[in-house]
């Protein structure tokens, strides 16, 4: 059983490495890398599900009787797109955090937040282009 299902062990190890990286690292970009590994593990799990022994790629061809199952592959294409969107959004947030705090280490971000709170300095989201944030700019 272990031999036949080796791909699932491989996928499982990949997922756990990714999850560990997410939990253990304070650097936001490293967290995203871990998240990607975790997701890729799941993608490979789905792709492995579609594999049929001696099956060819699911493109109709003369003289080929056995094809791999295309449905899991199509499904995971959707999930890959979602993964790309998640990664790009995460990286965009990391850039914004770097602009706002000057660091992408989670502990330092929290430290600087606490320091700013004690100083009572403004800690608004975004830069000088935001005006009227605190005032009652909005009329009824």
């Amino acid at each position: 059983m272990t031999g036949g299902h080796y791909i699932f062990w491989f996928v499982f190890v990949l997922m756990v490495i990714g999850l560990y990286a997410v939990i253990s690292h304070g650097n936001l970009v490293k967290k995203l890398i871990g998240l990607n590994l975790f997701q890729i593990g799941v993608f490979m799990f789905y792709i492995a599900l579609g594999k049929v022994e001696d099956g060819r790629a699911p493109i109709v061809e003369e003289g080929v009787e056995v094809y791999s199952h295309p449905l899991p592959h199509v499904l995971i294409l959707t999930a890959i797109v979602v993964g790309v969107a998640t990664t790009s959004l995460g990286l965009a947030l990391a850039i914004r955090i770097y602009e706002a705090y000057g660091t992408i280490e989670e502990d330092e971000v929290i430290e600087r937040d606490k320091a700013a709170e004690q100083d009572g300095t403004a800690e608004l989201n975004g830069t000088a282009e935001r005006d009227g944030v605190r005032g009652g700019e909005a009329g009824p």
Binding site: G90, R96, I97, A100, L124, N125, G126, V133
Partner: peptide, 10 residues
């Protein structure tokens, strides 16, 4: 409103 929202979102 606050920059803390960025980390919360992340």
């Amino acid at each position: 409103r606050r920059r803390r929202a960025l980390l919360a979102a992340f």
